[in-house]
């Protein structure tokens, strides 16, 4: 089976700084990691490969040149090949432009299963995975908490707030992984050394995908999303504390407040 895992390199902190002009993230100086949901996707792919050793895992990342280290980490965990989609023309992309770019690259690769993370901890959109599936016309299952391959189909347990859904998809298809899907293994020492000495990260620029993408859909200019304003949320004022109430009085008081604010 040919598996492609799409990953994103994200800042390892909740204190992201924003460029005041473009309202995009400033990545310099902030330690970077593989997005946690994506890393679970890598682990899930590695387990599928352990069950079917002739499988091949390609890991794909769109990002600036320094995203190379995220791909090396994936290689050091055991992925077979890595592709970095990197070109100034891809910069500043919103989810539409990002998914257009990644889908263009995927059109050039053989695959049975594509795994992406559910959402990135920097943007939190959860849109790129599903959009890629739409660009490629693939069946998709988001929020995967467990997956199992059975012949030519994959069984996915999808997690919702109040229920699970277990569905079967025909291969090829796309799955977006929750962090709960699989706890990622560590890299190994030899894995790291091989990732730099024996494996390589292919860099694909615009020229590499020009024939599978409409360049009007790339980068900041191809992004229909307009950020009106980005800001750090301020703490709200202190809440109202109700003391010394019995359980019944407390219920009465809370329901009353909710009615008062037309919440219920």
């Amino acid at each position: 089976m040919k598996i492609i895992v799409c990953i994103k390199q994200v800042p390892d902190t909740t204190e992201v700084r924003l460029d005041p002009v473009t309202n995009t993230l400033i990545r310099d100086g902030v330690p970077s990691i593989i997005n946690p949901d994506d890393k679970a996707g890598i682990e899930a792919a590695l387990r599928l490969k352990e069950a079917a050793p002739d499988s091949e895992i390609t890991v794909l990342c769109m990002g600036p040149p320094q995203a190379d280290v995220a791909l090396r980490e994936a290689l050091a965990m055991g992925c077979d090949q890595a592709i970095l989609l990197s070109d100034r023309a891809f910069g500043g992309a919103d989810t539409w432009a990002t998914s257009s770019t990644i889908a263009a690259a995927l059109k050039k690769l053989p695959y049975d299963l594509i795994i992406t993370g559910r959402q990135a901890i920097d943007g939190d959109t959860a849109q790129v995975g599903p959009q890629i599936a739409e660009h490629l016309g693939l069946p998709q299952a988001s929020y995967a908490e467990a997956i199992r391959v059975e012949g030519k189909r994959v069984i996915v347990k999808r997690q919702f707030e109040d229920r699970y859904q277990i569905i079967a998809l025909p291969l090829p298809c796309l799955i977006t992984a929750l962090a709960e899907l699989a706890t990622p293994r560590y890299m190994s020492v030899a894995g790291i050394l091989d990732a730099y000495r024996e494996k390589r990260v292919q860099v694909w620029d615009l020229a590499a995908i020009r024939d599978t993408v409409d360049t009007a859909n790339l980068g900041l200019k191809g992004s229909p999303t307009r950020v009106k304003k980005s800001f750090t949320k301020q703490a709200k004022g202190a809440g109202q504390v109700l003391r010394d109430l019995s359980a019944d009085e407390a219920v009465e008081a809370i329901v009353g407040k909710l009615r008062e604010k037309f919440i219920i």
Binding site: A76, M187, S188, V189, L193, A195, Y196, R197
Partner: peptide, 13 residues
Amino acid sequence: KEHALLRQLYASF
């Protein structure tokens, strides 16, 4: 780069 990534592995382990 490889030693830096090794350090990252050792530290998290």
